[in-house]
């Protein structure tokens, strides 16, 4: 059963489908939330809110606006950034990123099995790692920190034009690297 069908079933209050969707998404959504908030308790709290939202709003999901995962990721990102702002904290970019955790034998969810153990996941990770650090940093501060271009410029103490150029080059490179996979 694909993700869209699961969402349809959830909209009909199917707890089994909801459980399956949780198994597929919880790992990556929790990891994303944890990366934004850098606090396991806060991340768990946000993830719980997100799945309540999925349970409540599954019926309003519109396939035209993206795949179910993109929809869920947007919900998660927005909720985590809101929580970050409520806590009056600022997103901090962590450089270590992928290798330590990815190769460290941490437990993974079923969804992770689909993505992370596949060649596709490795290619995505490799594509992200090829981005220069300063480009990845600027992109992450915007995407996960909810920061505007001006805030990033002030935080990194770099001219606005430099930040724009870094984000543009990084995003285009990422797009080109992932074009075959997405």
């Amino acid at each position: 059963m694909d993700d869209a069908e699961l969402l349809q079933r959830i909209a009909q209050r199917d707890r089994q489908a909801f459980s399956q969707l949780y198994d597929r998404y919880s790992g990556v959504l929790y990891s994303t939330t944890l990366r934004i908030l850098n606090n396991p308790e806060e991340a768990s709290d946000v993830l719980q809110d997100v799945f309540f939202q999925i349970w409540e709003k599954a019926g309003s999901y519109d396939p035209k606006l993206g795949k179910p995962f993109n929809w869920a990721l947007t919900l998660t990102r927005n909720r985590a950034i809101d929580r970050l702002r409520a806590l009056k904290r600022r997103y901090s970019f962590i450089e270590e990123v992928t290798h330590e955790f990815a190769e460290g034998g941490n437990p993974r969810s079923a969804w992770n099995e689909e993505f992370m153990s596949s060649e596709r996941a490795s290619l995505i990770r490799a594509a992200v790692e090829t981005l220069p650090l300063e480009q990845r940093q600027a992109i992450e501060m915007a995407f996960l920190g909810g920061m505007t271009q001006n805030e990033i410029s002030e935080t990194l103490k770099q001219p606005l034009g430099t930040i724009k150029a870094r984000i543009r080059r990084g995003m285009l490179k990422l797009r080109d690297s992932l074009k075959e996979l997405l």
Partner: peptide
């Protein structure tokens, strides 16, 4: 670009949420 940005999260360190969380949500 949106697809590329969303795919980026796959590259993050993958950590499973606490098992009790699923029970709590369900």
């Amino acid at each position: 670009l949106r697809s590329a940005a969303d795919a980026m999260v796959v590259a993050f360190p993958q950590i499973t949420p606490p098992p009790a969380l699923k029970q709590s949500i369900l």
